[in-house]
Each structure stands twice: as C-alpha cells, then as structure tokens.
C-alpha cells in the first residue's frame, strides 16, 4: 500500500474517526480474515477474531507510533489474538471441513475455489486443491503453521516473527523451511510433482 495513504488512514483512525478504521478494515481485512481462518480453520472463529482485532485496534492505535512498520505491528496483534484463542480452546486448530456450509447455506468448498477460474472443471479442481491444502496445513506442527501464515499474510520478516515467538530468527526459518517442505511433499504425494 502507498505509504502516504496508509499514514493518512492511521492518522484518521488515531483521531478517533470511524472512517479511518473502515479504511484500515478495507485495506487489511481480507489478509487478516484469511490469517484467522487458516489459523483456526473456522469461518465463525475468523469472524470473531476479526471483530476482536478491530476492538483492540481502537484501544491500542492511539498508542501506536507510526514509524512505517504498521503491518508487522498489526499482524503481531493478530497473532496474539490467535494465540489467546488457541490457549483458551486448549486444542490445535483444525481447518474447516468441506461438509460445513457458510451462513447462506452454500458449501464452503465453493468459497475456497480460485475466483479467477472460468470453467466448472477448473473451479472444482481449485476447490479440491484448496481442500487438500487445508488438510496438509492441518498436519503441520501448529507453530510452524502459524509462522508460515504470518509470512504469507503478514509479510513479516523472520526477525519480526522471532520477536513474537521469542526465539532466534534462525529457529523461525528452520520451522518455516521444514514446514514448507512437508507441505510440498504432502501436496506432491497426493497429486504428483507440481
């Protein structure tokens, strides 16, 4: 995102204007929601966590010192929310089952497909791939999964992720490296080399 536009949104939000928060939600909502969903495996939980994050943003943003590192700060808050939720549930998160339906009754598999596919076959293949990816993610170590998600959705550096997990950046890289390798093998094992 353009730095000047981001600074304006943050300033508006810090001034207590609702449109500032709306703009931030519009800019980061999809990535935050995706992170929450992939971390918990539940659309219901993801919606809850997005709402919780917004509440924390309103309370914490006034203390945020904008030095151009907003995204890592935002996803650090998101990661803490996820860890709080996982700690409370006392269980590893599981991806959404394809038998679940969304609020409109539409099977979730339809929502996981690639929006750019034009044919039904491509849409089904994309949905199937997404399902398998979910299952592969589920089989990862929870910490490795969360680190991979923070790299993907939060675009965080290894050093920034290390600060969240209070471990050396090399440890983060090792987990991410092994986790991605396992994901690749799980996907290749099912559907052949990519």
């Amino acid at each position: 995102m353009e730095a000047q536009r981001l600074r304006a949104m943050i300033a508006s939000a810090q001034a207590g204007k609702a449109q500032g928060y709306e703009a931030l939600l519009e800019a980061y909502g999809p990535r935050l929601y995706g992170y929450f969903f992939r971390a918990t495996g539940s659309h219901h939980d993801a919606e809850d966590l997005l709402s919780d994050l917004t509440l924390r943003l309103v309370r914490m943003l006034k203390h945020y010192d904008d030095r151009g590192r907003f995204e890592p700060w935002l996803f650090r808050v998101a990661a803490n929310i996820v860890r709080d939720r996982i700690r409370r549930s006392k269980a590893n998160p599981t991806p959404a089952s394809l038998s679940l339906e969304d609020e409109s009754g539409q099977p979730l598999v339809d929502r996981l497909g690639d929006a750019k596919t034009e044919t039904v076959a491509e849409g089904l293949l994309a949905a199937e791939m997404s399902e398998r990816l979910d299952q592969a993610m589920e089989r990862l170590d929870a910490t490795a999964r969360e680190m991979i998600l923070l790299r993907y959705f939060g675009q965080m550096s290894f050093k920034e992720i290390a600060e969240i997990f209070q471990c050396p950046p090399g440890t983060v890289l090792a987990k991410v490296h092994r986790g991605l390798g396992r994901l690749r093998k799980l996907m290749e094992g099912k559907y052949g080399p990519q």
Binding site: G16, A18, Y21, E22, L25, E26, G29, P30, Y33, G34, F37, R38, H43, A46, E47, L50, S51, L53, T54, L55, L57, V58, R59, D102, E103, R111, L112, D114, A115, M129, S130, L133, I148, L149, R151, Y152, F153, H177, L180, G181, L183, R184, Q194
Partner: peptide
C-alpha cells in the same frame, strides 16, 4: 520457491457480514 508456490492458494474471501460486524464494533468502541 516453496513460499512462491503458496501464492494465492491460502487466500480466503472476506464475508461482508464479518466486515460489517467489525465496523459496528469499532463504531461502538469509539
């Protein structure tokens, strides 16, 4: 390379009601 393979694969559509609920929460807290 492995991270590039994931590009786009983990994205999820953001439901409108999730955005609306978050917005309402922000307005109420403000």
């Amino acid at each position: 390379r492995d991270e590039a393979l994931l590009e786009g694969a983990l994205d999820v559509e953001l439901p409108a009601q999730a955005t609306q609920r978050a917005r309402r929460r922000a307005v109420a807290e403000l």
